[in-house]
């Protein structure tokens, strides 16, 4: 009996020493509905991380209030590195545009990003303009005639509004609650311009030649549309920035952050994972915690537009 205990102790001892993090299941908070776009992408990545880390990873969907409910549930959890938040960086500033208090980003430690989503301005194929410059001159000649619908990204809509203000253009702007209704509206010719992410229904339609990409409204280039410039290249000071990443509590142990970052980097090079993403118009890519932080800062800059432009 004594010997058995000894063996047991040894085994447990080895387990503890051999693998510091993680030694028990990790819980991941996804602040959106199960089956949604962020959720489904996260599940693919998590599936591969599970195998790598060799512990179960439980996904906990906490949707509501544009991500705020999930972020708050995360902050309430223990800061031991076993509760991870999956969050798009743009969601940190969404409350600002709704006249609410911004989320305090100091409480989060960015671990690593896995997707950078670019927001693209799409126009109809039957429009007289085919490029962004032509759009601007057309809009100048026809004030109040064009209609723009945002595909669910408020910060990008504000970047577009800023461009309108700077160029002194009159285009009617509205918000759609997601990429899908915006795409439906432009295909039914109810609006002339929409804004949507890569991989959104609008982007899928553009890849099929049913819509024309006019410009990028966020801060990164896209290899599938090499001619498109970002607003920064075009001389506007603001560009939205969306990066999906993992976050820990600011006070979480550093080894947890390192282990997660290392694993994320490794799985994002996995061929099988990339295959799962093929055909969705989005390519996962590894971003360091610093790059994730930069994306947050870029977003905070865009948030100032709420003051500059107003409602």
């Amino acid at each position: 009996m004594k010997r058995l205990f000894l063996v047991l102790f040894l085994v447990i001892g080895f387990a503890v020493n051999g693998q510091a993090y993680p030694d028990r299941p990790i819980s991941m908070i996804v602040p959106y509905n199960a089956g949604g776009s962020l959720d489904s992408m996260t599940r693919i990545v998590v599936e591969f991380m599970k195998q790598e880390l060799d512990v179960p990873i439980l996904i906990n969907n906490r949707p509501g209030a544009s991500g705020t409910i999930g972020a708050e549930a995360f902050l309430k959890a223990k800061d031991d590195g076993y509760t991870v938040l999956v969050f798009p960086t743009s969601s940190f500033i969404t409350p600002v545009f709704q006249g609410r208090k911004a989320i305090n980003t100091d409480e989060f430690k960015p671990v690593g990003g896995f997707i950078k989503s670019e927001r693209i301005l799409f126009g109809r194929t039957d429009a007289p303009y085919k490029t962004f410059q032509e759009l601007i001159s057309y809009a100048r000649e026809n004030p109040g005639k064009l209609k723009f619908g945002s595909g669910g990204s408020t910060d990008t809509a504000y970047v577009f509004k800023y461009i309108l203000q700077k160029e002194n253009l009159d285009i009617n702007v509205t918000l759609f609650n997601g990429g899908a209704p915006a795409a439906a509206a432009i295909m039914g010719k109810h609006v002339d311009l929409i804004e949507g992410g890569n991989g959104s229904p609008g982007d899928v339609a553009a890849m099929a030649g049913k819509l024309i990409p006019l410009t990028i409204l966020s801060d990164g280039k896209l290899s599938k549309y090499p001619d498109l410039k970002t607003p920064l290249d075009l001389g506007y000071e603001y560009a939205s920035s969306v990066m999906f990443g993992f976050f820990l509590h600011a006070s979480a142990p550093a080894e947890a952050a390192q282990a997660l970052e290392k694993t994320l980097k490794k799985v994002l090079q996995n061929e099988k994972l990339l295959e799962k993403f093929a055909g969705r118009g989005v390519t996962p890519q590894f971003f360091t915690g610093d790059e994730l932080q930069n994306s947050i800062e870029a977003g905070k800059k865009v948030a100032k537009l709420y003051e500059i432009i107003g409602e």
Partner: peptide, 10 residues
Amino acid sequence: TMQGLTPGPM
């Protein structure tokens, strides 16, 4: 989309 299929015009 989770299965790598993208419904759309094509």
